[in-house]
Amino acid sequence: MIPTILEPFSVAFMARALWAGVVLSALCALVGVWVIARGMTFLGEAMGHAMLPGVAVAALTGVDLIVGAAASAVVMVLGVESMRTHRDFGRDTSIGLLFVGLLAVGVIIVSHSSSFATDLTGFLFGDVLAVDDGDLVRLCVLVAAVLAVTTLSYRGFLAVTFDVRKARTLGLRPTATNLLMVLTLAVAMAGAFSVVGTLLAFGMLVAPSASALLIVRRVPAAMLVAFGFGALATFVGLLVSWHRATAAGATIAATAVVLFFLTLALRTIGRAVLRRARGIADPTT
């Protein structure tokens, strides 16, 4: 007998959605911790929407959507990296300009292409319940590739995240390492978007990793905890979606955000209790 709480996952499409969410959690944990630690959240969000022109061109030419999305993401990354040290404006300005420009180009392409088959709503919100076995295989391959890059480049990624000067001292070429990191983010988000849409991909990129960094500071541990938060958000979100007939991807993303605020609240309460306990133990303070 299947326990009542697990009964929805006896349905094939729900089981595939659960596995997709778990694999996506692993993918986003590998890149999300770097994104949060380096303050690159806006770049991740902008990249998701700036993929539209590549997706539109890929759909019109019959090319795989992942290739189109990755191409747009790489264009944005290269543009941001080329302008990030410009004296006249900051990095956020370059991200905003490229985000709006690429998104506008994508909308123009879509609006002038009556044969365009990809639904904009599907692009933005996706449908994790429509994941098939091929999508799961692609996500697993992507996780393996990102894990390999992260493992091989871990020392450099760590240095450019927390101490760029030390990275230069160690001869790690921080400019090239930084470019590799954002390119890895671009490819990961392109692959995730093609399966679950930008809303869920970005939600899982940010919320679980932010929750993890409230608890632990070491990067490997934070990645493991972020994976746990993402998997939990997937499980709870799919159950809520099943019983309340809500959009699955949006519900998972919302659950991940709720978990972040619960973690933040518990951390705040815990610190307050600890300070009070120390005050009582040492009345002279």
Rank of each mutant, 00 (worst) to 15 (best):
M1G: 11
P3G: 00
I5R: 01
L6Y: 03
S10C: 01
V11G: 06
L18H: 01
W19I: 14
S25Q: 05
G32H: 04
R38F: 00
G44V: 10
G44K: 07
E45L: 15
A46P: 15
G48F: 03
A50M: 12
M51A: 14
P53S: 03
A59G: 03
D64T: 13
L65E: 13
G68T: 05
G68H: 03
A70Y: 09
V77F: 12
G79V: 05
E81W: 06
T85K: 14
T85S: 14
R91P: 09
G101D: 03
S111Y: 05
F116V: 00
L120D: 03
L120R: 06
T121K: 12
T121D: 12
L124Y: 11
D127A: 06
V128L: 11
L129S: 02
V131M: 04
D133F: 10
D135H: 13
R138Y: 08
C140W: 12
V146S: 06
L147R: 08
T150H: 13
L152S: 12
T161H: 03
D163H: 03
D163L: 02
K166Q: 14
T169L: 15
L172M: 14
R173D: 15
R173T: 14
T175Y: 12
T177W: 11
A188W: 09
G191H: 03
V195F: 08
L200H: 07
G203V: 09
M204P: 08
L205E: 05
P208D: 06
S209C: 02
L214C: 07
A221Q: 11
A221S: 13
F227H: 01
G228V: 00
A231D: 04
A233Y: 04
A233W: 02
T234G: 04
G237K: 01
S241E: 00
W242K: 05
H243E: 08
A245K: 08
A247S: 11
A248W: 03
A256C: 07
A256F: 04
L259M: 14
T263Q: 01
A265H: 13
R267S: 12
R267T: 07
R278M: 14
I280Y: 09
A281H: 02
